[in-house]
Design a protein around this nucleic acid. Structure first.
Lengths: 249, 249
DNA sequence: CGTATAGTTGATTAGTATCAACGCTAGTGG
DNA sequence: CCACTAGCGTTGATACTAATCAACTATACG
Protein backbone atom coordinates (compact mmCIF):
# COMPACT_ATOMS: atom_id res chain seq x y z
CA UNK A 1 0.00 0.00 0.00
CA UNK A 2 1.84 3.07 -1.13
CA UNK A 3 1.52 5.77 1.42
CA UNK A 4 1.22 9.33 0.49
CA UNK A 5 1.37 9.43 4.19
CA UNK A 6 1.03 13.13 4.75
CA UNK A 7 -2.70 12.69 4.73
CA UNK A 8 -3.19 9.89 7.16
CA UNK A 9 -2.94 9.26 10.86
CA UNK A 10 -0.89 6.45 12.30
CA UNK A 11 -2.53 5.28 15.50
CA UNK A 12 -4.45 7.95 17.36
CA UNK A 13 -7.99 7.17 16.29
CA UNK A 14 -9.17 3.56 16.03
CA UNK A 15 -10.07 4.12 12.45
CA UNK A 16 -10.82 7.64 11.45
CA UNK A 17 -13.50 6.92 8.89
CA UNK A 18 -15.53 4.36 10.77
CA UNK A 19 -17.83 6.90 12.30
CA UNK A 20 -21.29 7.35 10.92
CA UNK A 21 -23.29 4.83 9.02
CA UNK A 22 -23.00 6.18 5.53
CA UNK A 23 -19.28 5.80 5.15
CA UNK A 24 -17.62 4.10 2.27
CA UNK A 25 -14.43 2.80 3.57
CA UNK A 26 -16.13 -0.16 5.25
CA UNK A 27 -13.57 0.01 8.00
CA UNK A 28 -13.48 -2.83 10.37
CA UNK A 29 -13.57 -2.31 14.07
CA UNK A 30 -9.96 -3.35 14.22
CA UNK A 31 -7.98 -0.67 15.96
CA UNK A 32 -4.45 0.21 15.03
CA UNK A 33 -2.94 -1.45 18.06
CA UNK A 34 -4.45 -4.77 17.08
CA UNK A 35 -3.49 -4.17 13.48
CA UNK A 36 0.10 -3.59 14.45
CA UNK A 37 0.12 -6.67 16.63
CA UNK A 38 -0.94 -8.76 13.68
CA UNK A 39 1.32 -7.16 11.24
CA UNK A 40 4.51 -5.99 12.89
CA UNK A 41 6.45 -8.74 14.54
CA UNK A 42 6.97 -10.91 11.51
CA UNK A 43 10.33 -10.03 10.14
CA UNK A 44 12.28 -6.96 11.04
CA UNK A 45 15.40 -5.72 9.32
CA UNK A 46 17.47 -2.57 9.34
CA UNK A 47 18.28 -1.07 5.99
CA UNK A 48 20.74 1.77 5.27
CA UNK A 49 19.69 5.04 3.69
CA UNK A 50 19.36 5.22 -0.10
CA UNK A 51 18.66 1.52 -0.48
CA UNK A 52 16.37 0.48 -3.28
CA UNK A 53 13.83 -1.99 -1.91
CA UNK A 54 12.19 -2.76 -5.22
CA UNK A 55 11.66 -1.29 -8.66
CA UNK A 56 8.42 -0.58 -10.42
CA UNK A 57 7.35 -3.74 -12.19
CA UNK A 58 9.29 -6.14 -9.95
CA UNK A 59 7.42 -9.25 -8.86
CA UNK A 60 5.63 -8.22 -5.68
CA UNK A 61 6.38 -10.72 -2.94
CA UNK A 62 6.19 -8.58 0.16
CA UNK A 63 4.19 -5.87 1.77
CA UNK A 64 6.35 -3.60 3.91
CA UNK A 65 5.74 -1.82 7.17
CA UNK A 66 8.03 0.82 8.62
CA UNK A 67 8.98 0.50 12.27
CA UNK A 68 11.30 3.46 12.06
CA UNK A 69 12.70 5.63 9.30
CA UNK A 70 11.40 6.94 5.99
CA UNK A 71 10.92 5.58 2.49
CA UNK A 72 10.14 7.30 -0.80
CA UNK A 73 7.87 5.75 -3.42
CA UNK A 74 8.31 6.87 -6.99
CA UNK A 75 7.66 6.30 -10.65
CA UNK A 76 10.10 7.03 -13.47
CA UNK A 77 9.78 8.02 -17.10
CA UNK A 78 12.06 6.50 -19.71
CA UNK A 79 14.40 9.52 -19.71
CA UNK A 80 14.79 9.57 -15.95
CA UNK A 81 12.18 12.11 -14.96
CA UNK A 82 10.92 11.06 -11.57
CA UNK A 83 7.71 11.62 -9.67
CA UNK A 84 7.66 10.72 -5.99
CA UNK A 85 4.12 9.61 -5.34
CA UNK A 86 4.49 9.50 -1.59
CA UNK A 87 6.69 9.21 1.45
CA UNK A 88 6.12 6.49 4.03
CA UNK A 89 7.07 7.01 7.64
CA UNK A 90 6.90 5.11 10.90
CA UNK A 91 3.72 3.07 11.08
CA UNK A 92 2.96 3.22 7.37
CA UNK A 93 2.55 0.34 4.99
CA UNK A 94 3.77 0.25 1.41
CA UNK A 95 4.30 -2.21 -1.38
CA UNK A 96 1.12 -1.86 -3.37
CA UNK A 97 1.02 -4.30 -6.24
CA UNK A 98 -1.26 -4.96 -9.13
CA UNK A 99 -1.22 -8.11 -11.19
CA UNK A 100 1.55 -9.38 -8.98
CA UNK A 101 3.94 -6.51 -9.70
CA UNK A 102 4.84 -3.42 -7.75
CA UNK A 103 3.20 -0.31 -9.15
CA UNK A 104 6.08 1.94 -8.12
CA UNK A 105 9.67 1.80 -6.88
CA UNK A 106 10.66 2.21 -3.24
CA UNK A 107 13.89 3.50 -1.77
CA UNK A 108 14.85 4.29 1.80
CA UNK A 109 15.41 7.95 2.63
CA UNK A 110 17.11 7.33 5.97
CA UNK A 111 18.29 4.19 7.70
CA UNK A 112 15.05 2.32 8.16
CA UNK A 113 13.69 -0.52 10.28
CA UNK A 114 11.42 -2.54 8.05
CA UNK A 115 8.99 -5.41 8.49
CA UNK A 116 8.27 -7.55 5.46
CA UNK A 117 5.12 -9.61 5.04
CA UNK A 118 5.00 -12.14 2.28
CA UNK A 119 1.76 -11.60 0.46
CA UNK A 120 1.08 -15.32 0.74
CA UNK A 121 1.00 -15.26 4.51
CA UNK A 122 -0.94 -12.03 4.48
CA UNK A 123 -3.66 -13.66 2.44
CA UNK A 124 -3.74 -16.51 4.93
CA UNK A 125 -3.96 -14.08 7.81
CA UNK A 126 -6.81 -12.26 6.12
CA UNK A 127 -8.80 -15.45 5.72
CA UNK A 128 -8.68 -16.10 9.44
CA UNK A 129 -9.29 -12.47 10.27
CA UNK A 130 -11.72 -10.71 7.93
CA UNK A 131 -11.29 -7.49 9.85
CA UNK A 132 -7.75 -7.39 8.56
CA UNK A 133 -9.02 -7.22 5.02
CA UNK A 134 -11.34 -4.39 5.99
CA UNK A 135 -8.46 -2.61 7.58
CA UNK A 136 -6.39 -2.93 4.43
CA UNK A 137 -9.33 -1.68 2.42
CA UNK A 138 -9.68 1.27 4.75
CA UNK A 139 -6.00 2.16 4.41
CA UNK A 140 -6.23 1.90 0.64
CA UNK A 141 -9.17 4.28 0.54
CA UNK A 142 -7.25 6.77 2.64
CA UNK A 143 -4.34 6.53 0.27
CA UNK A 144 -6.59 7.09 -2.68
CA UNK A 145 -8.02 10.23 -1.10
CA UNK A 146 -4.50 11.45 -0.44
CA UNK A 147 -3.53 10.72 -4.03
CA UNK A 148 -6.47 12.79 -5.27
CA UNK A 149 -5.40 15.68 -3.08
CA UNK A 150 -1.93 15.41 -4.54
CA UNK A 151 -3.40 15.55 -8.05
CA UNK A 152 -4.97 18.89 -7.18
CA UNK A 153 -1.61 20.06 -5.89
CA UNK A 154 0.33 18.92 -8.95
CA UNK A 155 -2.21 20.10 -11.48
CA UNK A 156 -3.34 23.41 -10.10
CA UNK A 157 -1.14 24.81 -7.35
CA UNK A 158 1.78 27.25 -7.55
CA UNK A 159 5.23 26.45 -6.21
CA UNK A 160 4.51 28.44 -3.06
CA UNK A 161 1.26 26.62 -2.46
CA UNK A 162 2.85 23.24 -3.07
CA UNK A 163 5.63 23.79 -0.60
CA UNK A 164 3.22 25.23 1.98
CA UNK A 165 1.05 22.13 1.55
CA UNK A 166 4.00 19.87 2.17
CA UNK A 167 4.97 21.76 5.30
CA UNK A 168 1.43 21.73 6.65
CA UNK A 169 1.12 18.02 5.92
CA UNK A 170 4.37 17.24 7.72
CA UNK A 171 3.30 19.47 10.57
CA UNK A 172 0.04 17.58 10.93
CA UNK A 173 2.00 14.38 10.98
CA UNK A 174 4.32 15.75 13.65
CA UNK A 175 1.32 16.54 15.84
CA UNK A 176 -0.02 13.02 15.41
CA UNK A 177 3.28 11.69 16.65
CA UNK A 178 3.06 13.94 19.68
CA UNK A 179 5.58 16.47 18.48
CA UNK A 180 4.99 20.22 18.27
CA UNK A 181 3.13 21.42 15.18
CA UNK A 182 5.64 24.14 14.43
CA UNK A 183 8.70 21.90 14.30
CA UNK A 184 8.92 20.04 11.02
CA UNK A 185 11.68 17.57 10.19
CA UNK A 186 12.58 17.02 6.55
CA UNK A 187 14.45 13.75 6.36
CA UNK A 188 14.42 13.87 2.57
CA UNK A 189 16.67 15.88 0.26
CA UNK A 190 15.64 18.96 -1.73
CA UNK A 191 15.70 16.75 -4.82
CA UNK A 192 13.15 14.42 -3.21
CA UNK A 193 10.95 17.34 -2.21
CA UNK A 194 11.16 18.67 -5.76
CA UNK A 195 10.22 15.33 -7.27
CA UNK A 196 7.32 15.00 -4.85
CA UNK A 197 5.97 18.47 -5.58
CA UNK A 198 6.57 18.41 -9.33
CA UNK A 199 9.18 21.18 -9.17
CA UNK A 200 12.96 21.51 -9.54
CA UNK A 201 15.51 21.58 -6.75
CA UNK A 202 16.19 25.23 -7.45
CA UNK A 203 12.56 26.26 -7.23
CA UNK A 204 12.19 24.42 -3.95
CA UNK A 205 15.25 26.12 -2.56
CA UNK A 206 14.16 29.56 -3.73
CA UNK A 207 10.70 29.09 -2.30
CA UNK A 208 12.12 28.06 1.07
CA UNK A 209 14.20 31.23 0.97
CA UNK A 210 11.14 33.33 0.08
CA UNK A 211 9.21 31.91 3.01
CA UNK A 212 12.16 32.60 5.26
CA UNK A 213 12.43 36.21 4.07
CA UNK A 214 8.71 36.67 4.57
CA UNK A 215 9.05 35.42 8.12
CA UNK A 216 6.83 32.39 7.56
CA UNK A 217 9.49 29.88 8.51
CA UNK A 218 12.94 29.58 9.99
CA UNK A 219 15.45 27.03 8.72
CA UNK A 220 17.96 26.15 11.43
CA UNK A 221 19.38 23.57 9.05
CA UNK A 222 18.21 22.16 5.70
CA UNK A 223 16.55 19.20 7.42
CA UNK A 224 14.59 21.23 9.93
CA UNK A 225 11.92 23.88 9.46
CA UNK A 226 10.25 25.97 12.12
CA UNK A 227 6.82 27.20 11.12
CA UNK A 228 6.26 30.76 12.25
CA UNK A 229 3.43 32.05 10.10
CA UNK A 230 1.30 28.96 10.34
CA UNK A 231 -1.84 30.87 9.41
CA UNK A 232 -0.34 32.21 6.21
CA UNK A 233 1.11 28.84 5.34
CA UNK A 234 -2.23 27.16 5.90
CA UNK A 235 -3.91 29.76 3.70
CA UNK A 236 -1.37 29.13 0.97
CA UNK A 237 -1.80 25.38 1.26
CA UNK A 238 -5.53 25.79 0.83
CA UNK A 239 -5.06 27.81 -2.31
CA UNK A 240 -5.14 31.44 -1.28
CA UNK A 241 -1.95 32.60 -2.96
CA UNK A 242 -2.50 36.26 -2.13
CA UNK A 243 0.91 36.79 -0.62
CA UNK A 244 4.41 37.84 -1.58
CA UNK A 245 4.88 36.02 -4.88
CA UNK A 246 8.07 37.92 -5.73
CA UNK A 247 7.11 41.09 -3.90
CA UNK A 248 9.46 39.90 -1.17
CA UNK A 249 12.56 40.86 -3.21
CA UNK B 1 -15.24 4.81 -5.86
CA UNK B 2 -13.92 7.57 -8.03
CA UNK B 3 -12.81 6.23 -11.32
CA UNK B 4 -9.88 7.60 -13.10
CA UNK B 5 -11.29 5.15 -15.49
CA UNK B 6 -8.79 5.41 -18.28
CA UNK B 7 -6.72 2.79 -16.55
CA UNK B 8 -9.24 0.08 -15.93
CA UNK B 9 -11.20 -2.49 -17.85
CA UNK B 10 -14.94 -2.77 -17.59
CA UNK B 11 -15.90 -6.37 -18.10
CA UNK B 12 -13.60 -8.28 -20.38
CA UNK B 13 -11.46 -10.11 -17.86
CA UNK B 14 -13.03 -11.59 -14.73
CA UNK B 15 -10.73 -9.51 -12.58
CA UNK B 16 -7.49 -8.46 -14.11
CA UNK B 17 -5.31 -8.67 -11.04
CA UNK B 18 -6.47 -11.98 -9.65
CA UNK B 19 -3.85 -13.97 -11.53
CA UNK B 20 -0.81 -15.20 -9.72
CA UNK B 21 -0.50 -15.85 -6.04
CA UNK B 22 1.50 -12.84 -4.97
CA UNK B 23 -1.04 -10.20 -5.84
CA UNK B 24 -2.13 -7.47 -3.51
CA UNK B 25 -5.54 -6.60 -4.56
CA UNK B 26 -7.03 -9.63 -2.88
CA UNK B 27 -9.59 -9.83 -5.60
CA UNK B 28 -12.48 -12.10 -5.06
CA UNK B 29 -13.41 -14.66 -7.64
CA UNK B 30 -16.46 -12.56 -8.39
CA UNK B 31 -16.55 -11.82 -12.06
CA UNK B 32 -17.86 -8.60 -13.48
CA UNK B 33 -21.09 -10.12 -14.73
CA UNK B 34 -21.98 -11.22 -11.24
CA UNK B 35 -20.84 -7.93 -9.84
CA UNK B 36 -23.08 -6.05 -12.21
CA UNK B 37 -25.97 -8.31 -11.40
CA UNK B 38 -25.61 -7.45 -7.73
CA UNK B 39 -25.05 -3.83 -8.26
CA UNK B 40 -26.90 -2.59 -11.28
CA UNK B 41 -30.61 -3.11 -11.06
CA UNK B 42 -31.26 -1.19 -7.91
CA UNK B 43 -32.28 2.24 -8.97
CA UNK B 44 -31.82 3.68 -12.41
CA UNK B 45 -32.32 7.27 -13.39
CA UNK B 46 -31.53 9.43 -16.38
CA UNK B 47 -29.79 12.69 -15.68
CA UNK B 48 -29.18 15.55 -18.15
CA UNK B 49 -25.71 16.78 -19.06
CA UNK B 50 -23.98 19.26 -16.76
CA UNK B 51 -25.88 18.10 -13.68
CA UNK B 52 -24.05 18.26 -10.37
CA UNK B 53 -24.59 14.97 -8.53
CA UNK B 54 -22.83 15.99 -5.35
CA UNK B 55 -20.22 18.40 -4.08
CA UNK B 56 -17.01 17.65 -2.28
CA UNK B 57 -17.80 17.36 1.41
CA UNK B 58 -21.47 16.51 0.99
CA UNK B 59 -22.77 13.72 3.20
CA UNK B 60 -22.14 10.56 1.20
CA UNK B 61 -25.33 8.53 0.99
CA UNK B 62 -24.94 6.77 -2.33
CA UNK B 63 -22.44 4.98 -4.43
CA UNK B 64 -23.08 5.50 -8.14
CA UNK B 65 -22.72 3.24 -11.14
CA UNK B 66 -22.94 4.43 -14.73
CA UNK B 67 -25.13 2.46 -17.10
CA UNK B 68 -24.56 4.90 -19.92
CA UNK B 69 -22.96 8.31 -20.26
CA UNK B 70 -20.00 10.07 -18.66
CA UNK B 71 -19.31 11.84 -15.39
CA UNK B 72 -16.42 14.04 -14.29
CA UNK B 73 -15.04 13.97 -10.75
CA UNK B 74 -13.22 17.03 -9.52
CA UNK B 75 -11.81 19.00 -6.65
CA UNK B 76 -11.83 22.79 -6.34
CA UNK B 77 -9.61 25.35 -4.69
CA UNK B 78 -11.12 28.32 -2.88
CA UNK B 79 -10.59 30.66 -5.85
CA UNK B 80 -12.22 28.30 -8.34
CA UNK B 81 -9.21 26.52 -9.76
CA UNK B 82 -10.37 23.04 -10.61
CA UNK B 83 -8.64 19.69 -10.95
CA UNK B 84 -10.59 16.87 -12.56
CA UNK B 85 -9.31 13.75 -10.86
CA UNK B 86 -11.06 11.36 -13.22
CA UNK B 87 -13.77 10.64 -15.71
CA UNK B 88 -16.20 7.79 -15.16
CA UNK B 89 -17.80 6.02 -18.09
CA UNK B 90 -20.19 3.16 -18.69
CA UNK B 91 -19.63 0.39 -16.19
CA UNK B 92 -17.65 2.51 -13.74
CA UNK B 93 -18.44 3.17 -10.11
CA UNK B 94 -17.90 6.46 -8.34
CA UNK B 95 -18.85 8.16 -5.11
CA UNK B 96 -15.83 7.50 -2.95
CA UNK B 97 -16.33 8.83 0.55
CA UNK B 98 -14.25 9.17 3.64
CA UNK B 99 -15.61 9.86 7.08
CA UNK B 100 -19.06 9.84 5.57
CA UNK B 101 -18.40 12.66 3.11
CA UNK B 102 -17.62 12.65 -0.59
CA UNK B 103 -13.97 13.31 -1.27
CA UNK B 104 -14.71 15.09 -4.55
CA UNK B 105 -17.55 16.59 -6.56
CA UNK B 106 -19.28 14.83 -9.45
CA UNK B 107 -21.02 16.29 -12.47
CA UNK B 108 -22.43 14.65 -15.56
CA UNK B 109 -20.62 15.36 -18.82
CA UNK B 110 -23.38 14.02 -21.08
CA UNK B 111 -26.90 12.81 -20.41
CA UNK B 112 -26.24 9.85 -18.16
CA UNK B 113 -28.07 6.75 -16.96
CA UNK B 114 -27.16 6.28 -13.32
CA UNK B 115 -27.70 3.62 -10.70
CA UNK B 116 -27.57 4.71 -7.09
CA UNK B 117 -26.76 2.40 -4.18
CA UNK B 118 -27.39 3.61 -0.70
CA UNK B 119 -24.26 2.85 1.26
CA UNK B 120 -26.42 1.28 3.95
CA UNK B 121 -27.76 -1.39 1.65
CA UNK B 122 -24.35 -1.87 0.13
CA UNK B 123 -22.94 -2.67 3.56
CA UNK B 124 -25.75 -5.17 4.06
CA UNK B 125 -25.02 -6.72 0.69
CA UNK B 126 -21.36 -6.99 1.55
CA UNK B 127 -22.08 -8.84 4.76
CA UNK B 128 -23.98 -11.53 2.92
CA UNK B 129 -21.45 -11.62 0.11
CA UNK B 130 -17.85 -11.16 1.22
CA UNK B 131 -16.69 -11.44 -2.35
CA UNK B 132 -18.39 -8.13 -2.98
CA UNK B 133 -16.13 -6.46 -0.48
CA UNK B 134 -13.12 -8.02 -2.15
CA UNK B 135 -14.36 -6.75 -5.46
CA UNK B 136 -14.71 -3.24 -4.11
CA UNK B 137 -11.25 -3.48 -2.64
CA UNK B 138 -9.94 -4.63 -5.98
CA UNK B 139 -11.52 -1.70 -7.78
CA UNK B 140 -10.13 0.72 -5.23
CA UNK B 141 -6.62 -0.60 -5.71
CA UNK B 142 -6.96 -0.15 -9.46
CA UNK B 143 -8.10 3.38 -8.96
CA UNK B 144 -5.17 4.08 -6.70
CA UNK B 145 -2.75 2.80 -9.31
CA UNK B 146 -4.42 5.02 -11.90
CA UNK B 147 -4.18 7.99 -9.55
CA UNK B 148 -0.47 7.39 -9.13
CA UNK B 149 -0.01 7.30 -12.89
CA UNK B 150 -1.87 10.60 -13.12
CA UNK B 151 0.49 12.09 -10.51
CA UNK B 152 3.40 11.25 -12.79
CA UNK B 153 1.57 12.91 -15.66
CA UNK B 154 0.72 16.06 -13.71
CA UNK B 155 4.07 16.41 -12.02
CA UNK B 156 6.50 15.54 -14.78
CA UNK B 157 4.99 15.43 -18.25
CA UNK B 158 4.85 18.15 -20.91
CA UNK B 159 1.60 19.33 -22.45
CA UNK B 160 2.21 17.16 -25.51
CA UNK B 161 2.86 14.09 -23.40
CA UNK B 162 -0.21 14.71 -21.27
CA UNK B 163 -2.53 15.01 -24.21
CA UNK B 164 -0.98 11.97 -25.89
CA UNK B 165 -1.51 10.03 -22.65
CA UNK B 166 -5.16 11.01 -22.56
CA UNK B 167 -5.67 9.94 -26.15
CA UNK B 168 -3.93 6.62 -25.63
CA UNK B 169 -5.96 5.99 -22.50
CA UNK B 170 -9.23 6.71 -24.25
CA UNK B 171 -8.11 4.57 -27.15
CA UNK B 172 -7.42 1.66 -24.84
CA UNK B 173 -10.85 2.13 -23.36
CA UNK B 174 -12.40 2.18 -26.83
CA UNK B 175 -10.77 -1.16 -27.61
CA UNK B 176 -12.11 -2.65 -24.39
CA UNK B 177 -15.58 -1.63 -25.47
CA UNK B 178 -15.04 -3.33 -28.80
CA UNK B 179 -14.51 -0.16 -30.79
CA UNK B 180 -11.53 0.51 -33.05
CA UNK B 181 -8.39 1.74 -31.28
CA UNK B 182 -7.89 4.63 -33.66
CA UNK B 183 -11.30 6.21 -33.17
CA UNK B 184 -11.48 8.18 -29.94
CA UNK B 185 -14.60 10.00 -28.76
CA UNK B 186 -14.20 13.00 -26.49
CA UNK B 187 -17.54 13.58 -24.79
CA UNK B 188 -16.02 16.23 -22.54
CA UNK B 189 -15.23 19.86 -23.38
CA UNK B 190 -11.78 21.33 -23.90
CA UNK B 191 -12.15 22.96 -20.49
CA UNK B 192 -12.67 19.54 -18.90
CA UNK B 193 -9.68 18.11 -20.71
CA UNK B 194 -7.60 21.06 -19.55
CA UNK B 195 -8.66 20.63 -15.94
CA UNK B 196 -7.94 16.91 -16.12
CA UNK B 197 -4.45 17.39 -17.58
CA UNK B 198 -3.49 20.39 -15.46
CA UNK B 199 -3.36 22.72 -18.48
CA UNK B 200 -5.42 25.60 -19.87
CA UNK B 201 -8.04 25.40 -22.60
CA UNK B 202 -5.75 27.26 -24.96
CA UNK B 203 -2.82 24.94 -24.44
CA UNK B 204 -5.05 21.92 -25.02
CA UNK B 205 -6.38 23.44 -28.21
CA UNK B 206 -2.93 24.41 -29.48
CA UNK B 207 -1.56 20.95 -28.73
CA UNK B 208 -4.41 19.30 -30.63
CA UNK B 209 -3.58 21.58 -33.54
CA UNK B 210 0.13 20.68 -33.30
CA UNK B 211 -0.68 16.96 -33.40
CA UNK B 212 -2.93 17.55 -36.37
CA UNK B 213 -0.23 19.48 -38.25
CA UNK B 214 2.25 16.72 -37.46
CA UNK B 215 -0.11 14.17 -38.92
CA UNK B 216 -0.54 12.29 -35.65
CA UNK B 217 -4.28 12.79 -35.48
CA UNK B 218 -7.25 14.00 -37.47
CA UNK B 219 -10.09 15.94 -35.85
CA UNK B 220 -13.30 15.52 -37.85
CA UNK B 221 -15.06 17.47 -35.12
CA UNK B 222 -14.01 18.67 -31.66
CA UNK B 223 -15.59 15.61 -30.04
CA UNK B 224 -13.90 13.05 -32.24
CA UNK B 225 -10.24 12.24 -32.80
CA UNK B 226 -8.74 9.79 -35.25
CA UNK B 227 -5.35 8.49 -34.19
CA UNK B 228 -3.02 8.25 -37.16
CA UNK B 229 0.47 8.16 -35.68
CA UNK B 230 -0.36 5.78 -32.88
CA UNK B 231 3.27 4.81 -32.46
CA UNK B 232 4.42 8.38 -32.00
CA UNK B 233 1.55 9.10 -29.66
CA UNK B 234 2.36 6.05 -27.59
CA UNK B 235 5.98 7.12 -27.42
CA UNK B 236 4.95 10.57 -26.26
CA UNK B 237 2.60 9.13 -23.67
CA UNK B 238 5.43 7.04 -22.27
CA UNK B 239 7.66 10.03 -21.94
CA UNK B 240 9.76 10.17 -25.08
CA UNK B 241 9.13 13.77 -26.05
CA UNK B 242 11.62 13.73 -28.90
CA UNK B 243 9.24 15.08 -31.50
CA UNK B 244 8.15 18.36 -32.93
CA UNK B 245 7.80 20.55 -29.86
CA UNK B 246 7.33 23.67 -31.95
CA UNK B 247 9.28 22.46 -34.94
CA UNK B 248 5.97 21.73 -36.55
CA UNK B 249 5.37 25.45 -37.18
C1' DC C 1 43.40 20.14 3.56
C1' DG C 2 41.24 18.57 -0.64
C1' DT C 3 37.24 16.57 -2.61
C1' DA C 4 32.49 15.33 -3.13
C1' DT C 5 27.75 16.26 -2.27
C1' DA C 6 23.88 19.10 -1.08
C1' DG C 7 22.04 23.40 -1.04
C1' DT C 8 21.68 28.30 -2.39
C1' DT C 9 21.70 32.08 -5.49
C1' DG C 10 21.94 34.46 -10.02
C1' DA C 11 21.11 35.02 -15.13
C1' DT C 12 18.63 33.59 -18.80
C1' DT C 13 15.39 30.71 -21.34
C1' DA C 14 11.39 28.16 -22.29
C1' DG C 15 6.90 26.40 -21.78
C1' DT C 16 2.64 27.48 -20.56
C1' DA C 17 -0.68 30.96 -18.84
C1' DT C 18 -3.05 35.06 -19.66
C1' DC C 19 -5.35 38.45 -22.34
C1' DA C 20 -7.69 39.33 -26.49
C1' DA C 21 -9.75 38.63 -30.91
C1' DC C 22 -11.93 35.82 -34.11
C1' DG C 23 -14.63 31.83 -36.31
C1' DC C 24 -17.83 28.24 -36.12
C1' DT C 25 -22.05 26.03 -34.81
C1' DA C 26 -26.48 25.81 -32.63
C1' DG C 27 -30.39 27.79 -30.99
C1' DT C 28 -33.75 31.91 -31.14
C1' DG C 29 -36.75 35.14 -32.91
C1' DG C 30 -38.15 38.32 -36.45
C1' DC D 1 -35.41 32.11 -44.39
C1' DC D 2 -32.10 34.86 -42.36
C1' DA D 3 -30.13 38.05 -38.73
C1' DC D 4 -28.96 37.76 -33.86
C1' DT D 5 -26.96 35.78 -29.92
C1' DA D 6 -24.48 32.59 -26.98
C1' DG D 7 -21.14 29.16 -26.19
C1' DC D 8 -17.25 26.63 -27.53
C1' DG D 9 -13.08 26.23 -29.84
C1' DT D 10 -9.11 28.19 -32.23
C1' DT D 11 -5.49 31.40 -32.98
C1' DG D 12 -2.41 35.33 -31.91
C1' DA D 13 0.37 38.48 -28.86
C1' DT D 14 2.38 39.01 -24.65
C1' DA D 15 3.44 37.99 -19.74
C1' DC D 16 5.00 35.24 -16.25
C1' DT D 17 6.21 31.19 -13.52
C1' DA D 18 9.27 27.87 -13.13
C1' DA D 19 13.08 25.41 -15.69
C1' DT D 20 17.64 25.49 -17.18
C1' DC D 21 22.36 26.69 -17.05
C1' DA D 22 25.97 28.22 -14.21
C1' DA D 23 28.50 29.74 -10.27
C1' DC D 24 29.18 29.74 -5.61
C1' DT D 25 28.80 28.19 -0.49
C1' DA D 26 28.48 25.03 3.16
C1' DT D 27 28.91 20.69 5.04
C1' DA D 28 30.64 16.01 5.37
C1' DC D 29 34.32 12.82 4.47
C1' DG D 30 38.82 10.85 3.63
Amino acid sequence: MGQTALEREPEKKPCGDCHGASQVSFCSDMDDAEFRRLVEPLCRSSVPAATTLFHEGDAADNLFSIAQGAVKLYKLLADGRRQIIGFSFEGDLFGLAIEGRYAYAAETVTRTQLCRFPYRSLVTLMQGEPRLERKMFCLTVRELVAAQAQMLLLGRMTARERLASLLMGLSRRAVMHGRPASLVTLPMSRADIADFLGLTIETVSRTFTQFKREGLIAIPDPGQVVLVGEGSLRGLAEGADLSGNGSGG
